[in-house]
């Protein structure tokens, strides 16, 4: 059952990557990255149990905190003027690379 849950989380991460690549707006991509990060925390915890090494949980905790800080950092930067969503260019913004 642990392995089934691990595979399910991997599938969800692939779906998140598809949304991140497809866009269409900048915020969809950030949302996908955020979801990818939270699912990574779950994946690391599950892998710790699959491999019988619960020490992995420490890494999961650190990953949760780093993921949170990175999202807040990106969004704080997005308040600055050069990061604005350009309404004429609906597909993507120029500063997203």
């Amino acid at each position: 059952m642990l392995i089934a849950a691990t595979i399910a989380i991997l599938v969800v991460m692939i779906l998140a990557i598809i949304r991140g690549v497809a866009g269409p707006t900048l915020y969809d991509r950030i949302l996908a990255v955020n979801m990818f990060g939270t699912k990574t925390v779950l994946l690391i915890s599950l892998l710790g149990f699959v491999m019988g090494r619960p020490d992995f949980l420490d890494i999961a905790i650190v990953y949760a905190l780093i993921n949170f800080i990175s999202i807040i950092g990106v969004l704080h930067f997005s308040d600055s003027t050069e990061f604005r969503h350009d309404p004429d260019d609906t597909g993507s913004t120029k500063k997203e690379s």
Binding site: T25, Y27, I30, L31, N34, T38, V41, S45, P54, L57, D58, A60, I61, A64, L65, N67, F68, I71, I72, L75, S78, D79, R84, H85, P87
Partner: peptide, 28 residues
């Protein structure tokens, strides 16, 4: 430790969602 991960997830995810929604809303 698992309980701590759960509590941290429940504290962090609404803050991140709200920050994301607010940034998107403010940027039209």
């Amino acid at each position: 430790k698992l309980l701590m991960i759960l509590i941290m997830t429940l504290f962090i995810s609404p803050v991140a969602s709200h920050a994301l929604a607010k940034a998107a809303f403010r940027n039209d």
